[in-house]
Write a protein that binds this DNA or RNA. Structure first.
Length: 994
DNA sequence: TCTTGCCCTTA
DNA sequence: GTAAGGGCAAGAT
């Protein structure tokens, strides 16, 4: 589509006085869509968020160019769009950009509207068959620069940075960031002329450019700086010292050359519209106003009308009946109109863009303006302050009261909150203005004898905390932390209960679970484009690592104040998204209230019997020694039994046993399933190995390791729960992991017996029975399953009966076992391959079982298909309480990966809804126990189980209350269509209670 | 000394 | 077939 306003014949070339602005249209649409809150046209809900952002950006650029100063306005201007997915690059490399998800549903109608917008603003828009927008931009930019004109590319796409030069600049309007040669160097470690060399080595996962394995940006820049360019490097690859690197460069040389072709922009596209034709034409005021009115963009309508002298009141809104969107007919019924081909064709070409913070568009709300400020104000330390007097501290506290919120971060001596001593803390209420309050820094020079004395110029800890406590506990000041649970635990040990509070890690997790990590450094790079000072740079790592109290105060201050500043900025970027993406309830009901609940559980810890574990270690060692003798005998030599490599060589090399499988790296697999198969064949050695491994695992991971986790003061074991580690909403437990304590085998349960109640107390274990199958029955709406749970039937027996037509009474246990495996398979997103593996049957037989199952329970099949459709369309799936699990790669062309993500997406709502239910129970539990005057304490959570410690006299009352809270956890907002059943028991140790 | 692969523990 | 964390051996640095 071309919009040439002028006549070819008499077009003068561009000169040094000209300024050409090239807008990367497709990328802009995606980024505006993600960065801006969803905005819809009043009468019919037509989504126009991206259109609005686009119009505002166009208007600003046309009026001002890049700066408000006169003379910066463009003389030439064009918006460049992608045309179709088929380009010369997909011919070279079919996987190129192949994993891109389709655009969100409410973005699709906006593609067409944005093309309309270019017309309304009398702006040239260019797209050309077979070429990406980037190639057209490259061609125009090079042509204009040759004529001496100034060129500005408006894009956030790093692939365009190779075009930067004396006459060519780039601006990312979404981030308000200008790119010149220094920025390119910062990003790629080389100048613009070498960018493609680096890219062809490092590859790009976003565009599926393969590059060379094991080489990232850093290494690529290093190599290019040494060798000059890709070809020289490849021809001299043999000189590389590092073995792996050399081999990869040689092996993947061709792949690197293909990558180079992919990333090299075509600068000689035979353009249909010559660059000289792109001159700016006068804005037709009434035309623009008509369009803007139709979109319902009142602010911009007014502004354009004022500037152009158009009389807005007299101009009729354009008549936009946009096909492809639900528009009410004359009776108000929603009617779906077919989407126009143009709108849909855009979908396959439009790059999937990460959501980015709002840029320079007119803000829709104050919140997005704040987000913009947070993301775009450069981070520098000049407004960071080290607080050394109480007066100074009080003025920072006053500012927190005044502003109403404060980012807060503690610095301590340990990553383990239970062992961490407070060293200092940082505050920040205004972006860019942060402070560090050192409290316990010691002289780092001296070792054990000298030094270790408190450094001068620090406020006494007690005085500082006394001054801070009222503010940290004040309802009127919102505290903002990254990983709040940690700071909450540190402060509660100083008698301060932080409240109310937000956690940026949980905000990110709520909004973006599955899209990547939620740690501060990662979030800062993702949202602020800023890499915070690494902890390693301050404290070092490994053996030479020092504790934070030994860091010089000036260094500590720069690091800590930056953390508070970054935390505040992240909060300003993420918090507004909660409302606009309708995730506020999930955050407020399922995430934030978990912080103090888990913190208290961690603080309480659980008692383990050290002697018992020590005895077990001895027993295990003895058992292992006996097995080792037999193993060496059978093998005919001594070797490291713990080495899968050595074991594989013995079994499949030396002894030449059959049935050897290979791992993905080509080594012999010695997994338990392989060894079991060999044992069944009657081979002695494999069965001994399996037994040895079992004991070895129990000893090293549990009986040896757990005593080392007993806290010196509390004498109990304190795990750490992560609220933001899983995609589905489950918790995870680490250091030590108390969610994988053995239970399956007799020997293993002895470990569990070492988890004991305090004197005079009992442990209560309360677990949901079959919660995931119940959730599935509810969500997929399966009558037979619901009925079976209603009637309290054995669900696996019922499944077997339904599938194989056998009566439940007197059922063959093997039949039931198969049905049970199928039920689990369903929850895991079943595949014939997996089921066959699990049951040790053929793939065909497994397929037949699955087919039968789907015939008997057609609702399950429907449910699975619906989920798959959902995840492919949206990139995420949701639990019954609205939690989202994202699968950004689900549209990959790789069939295995695709199937994997589909299974994960099928499982996520089931596993995640169950996790939500237990979270709801946990959030309520403490208040309910208090209200009933019960002293029971919640100690552990293991996905569908809660462990309590309770005085012996209150066991019965506690069990019935716990059961009630857990069984009614969905209420009142949701009435599950199946009953939840909780089994609970009390005993002196965890094994017997379970 | 740090990272990766393998194997094993749980729900 | 889903979701996690951790110990050890071996290889890369």
């Amino acid at each position: 589509m071309i919009r040439a306003m002028s006549n070819n014949a008499s077009i003068p070339a561009l000169t040094a006085d000209d300024h050409l602005i090239l807008v990367d249209g497709s990328t802009f649409i995606f980024r505006a869509y993600h960065a801006l809150p969803p905005l819809t046209r009043k009468p019919d809900g037509l989504p126009i968020g991206a259109v609005s952002g686009f119009c505002n950006m166009l208007w600003k650029l046309l009026q001002e160019g890049l700066t408000p100063e006169k003379g910066d306005e463009p003389t030439h201007f064009a918006v460049i769009f992608d045309h179709s997915s088929k380009t010369f690059r997909s011919d070279i490399y079919p996987e190129y950009k192949a994993q891109r998800p389709p655009p969100p549903e409410d973005l699709i109608p906006q593609f067409g509207l944005i093309r309309e917008a270019t017309k309304a603003f009398s702006v040239h828009s260019v797209e050309q068959e077979g070429f990406e927008a980037d190639d057209l931009i490259a061609t125009y930019a090079v042509q204009a620069a040759k004529m001496g004109a100034r060129v500005t590319i408006v894009s956030g796409d790093k692939d365009l940075l190779q075009l930067i030069g004396p006459n060519v600049g780039m601006i990312d309007t979404m981030k308000n960031k200008i790119f010149g040669e220094p920025e390119v160097f910062e990003k790629f470690g080389v100048g613009p002329d070498k960018v493609i060399e680096v890219q062809s080595l490092a590859g790009d996962s976003v565009d599926n450019v393969p590059g060379v394995p094991g080489i990232g940006l850093k290494t690529a820049a290093l190599l290019i700086n040494e060798y000059g360019d890709l070809e020289t490097l490849l021809s001299r690859a043999g000189e590389i010292k590092q073995n792996k690197r050399r081999e990869n460069l040689i092996e993947f040389a061709e792949q690197a050359r293909i990558s180079k072709q992919l990333v090299t922009l075509k600068q000689d596209v035979p353009v249909d519209v010559p660059v000289t034709d792109l001159s700016v034409t006068d804005l037709n005021g009434p035309k623009a106003v008509g369009f803007l009115k139709a979109m319902g963009l009142t602010t911009l309508t007014k502004r354009v009308a004022e500037t152009t002298g158009a009389e807005a009141a007299n101009i009729e809104a354009d008549d936009f009946q946009v096909p492809g969107w639900h528009i009410p007919d004359h009776k108000g019924r929603m009617v779906e109109h077919a989407a126009p081909a143009a709108a849909l064709s855009a979908d396959s070409t439009a790059p999937g863009a990460e959501p980015l913070p709002n840029g320079m568009m007119v803000p829709q709300t104050v919140a997005t303006a704040r987000a913009h400020a947070a993301a775009s104000a450069p981070i520098d330390a000049s407004d960071y302050e080290t607080v050394t007097t109480l007066e100074q501290l009080k003025s920072w506290i006053a500012e927190a009261y005044e502003v109403g919120y404060v980012a807060f971060d503690t610095e301590t001596t340990s990553l383990d909150a239970m062992q961490a001593d407070l060293v200092g803390l940082s505050l920040c209420s205004k972006v860019g203005k942060a402070c560090y309050v050192p409290l316990a820094h010691v002289d780092g020079e001296g070792d054990l004898l000298g030094g270790g004395g408190l450094v001068e110029g620090q406020i006494p800890m007690a005085e500082a905390l006394a001054a801070l406590k009222p503010m940290l506990e004040d309802r009127g000041v919102l505290k903002i932390a990254q990983n709040l649970k940690y700071d909450w635990l540190v402060m509660t040990r100083h008698g301060i209960d932080i409240s109310p509070a937000d956690d940026t890690m949980l905000l990110s997790y709520t909004l973006d679970a599955g899209k990547g990590g939620n740690g501060m450094d990662e979030l800062s790079e993702r949202w602020l484009g800023h890499k915070p000072i690494p902890f390693k740079e301050i404290c070092g790592s490994g053996k030479s690592m020092i504790t934070f109290d030994r860091v010089p105060i000036d260094k500590a201050s720069a690091y800590a104040a930056e953390d508070a500043d970054v935390t505040l900025r992240l909060w300003q970027v993420l918090k507004p998204r909660l409302a606009s993406e309708r995730m506020a309830t999930v955050y407020e009901k399922l995430e934030r209230p978990m912080v103090p609940v888990l913190a208290r559980m961690e603080k309480r810890g659980i008692s383990v019997d050290r002697q018992m574990l020590s005895r077990l270690s001895g027993d295990f060692a003895q058992g292992m020694a006996g097995l080792e003798d037999e193993i060496y005998q059978l093998a005919g030599e001594r070797f490291n039994i713990g080495s899968p490599k050595q074991l594989g060589d013995i079994l499949f090399g030396k002894m030449n046993l059959p049935g050897g499988k290979k791992t993905k790296t080509g080594a012999w697999s010695t997994s338990a399933s392989v060894l079991d198969d060999l044992a069944v064949e009657g081979h002695e050695l494999p069965s001994r190995i399996v037994s040895w491994r079992q004991l070895s695992k129990l000893k090293s991971t549990y009986s040896d390791a757990l005593p080392g986790r007993i806290h010196p003061d509390t004498k109990r074991v304190h795990t750490s729960y992560s609220l933001a580690a899983t995609t589905t909403g489950r918790l995870s437990s680490s250091e030590p992991n108390l969610q994988n304590i053995p239970v399956r085998t007799e020997e293993g349960r002895k470990i569990r017996q070492a988890f004991v109640a305090a004197t005079g107390h009992k442990l209560i274990s309360a677990d949901y029975s079959q919660i995931e199958l119940r959730v599935l029955a509810h969500m997929a709406d399966i009558p037979q399953l619901k009925k079976a749970f209603e009637d309290g039937l054995d669900i696996h027996a019922m499944t077997a009966s339904e599938m194989f037509g056998v009566p439940i009474e007197g059922m063959d246990p093997m039949i039931r076992r198969q049905a049970k495996a199928i039920n689990f398979g369903i929850i895991y997103g079943i595949s014939a391959f997996g089921l066959a593996n699990q049951l040790g049957i053929g793939r065909g037989e497994a397929s037949a079982y699955i087919k039968t199952y789907f015939e008997r329970f057609p609702g399950i099949k429907d449910y699975m298909e619906a989920i798959k459709k959902d995840v492919h369309a949206n990139g995420y799936v949701s639990t019954i309480f609205g939690r989202k699990a994202h699968y950004p790669e689900v549209n990959t062309k790789n069939p295995n990966m695709r199937a994997f993500y589909e299974r994960a997406a099928i499982n996520a709502p089931i596993q995640g809804s169950a996790a939500d239910i237990l979270r709801r129970a946990m959030v309520r539990m403490e208040d309910r126990l208090d209200a009933s005057k019960l002293d029971a304490q919640m100690l552990l959570q293991v996905h569908d189980e809660l462990i309590f410690e309770v005085p012996g006299s209150q066991v019965d009352a506690t069990i019935s209350l716990v059961r009630e809270v857990m069984e009614k956890a969905c209420e009142p907002v949701l009435q599950l269509s199946v009953p939840l059943q909780v089994d609970a028991r009390a005993a002196d140790n965890w094994d017997e209670a379970h």
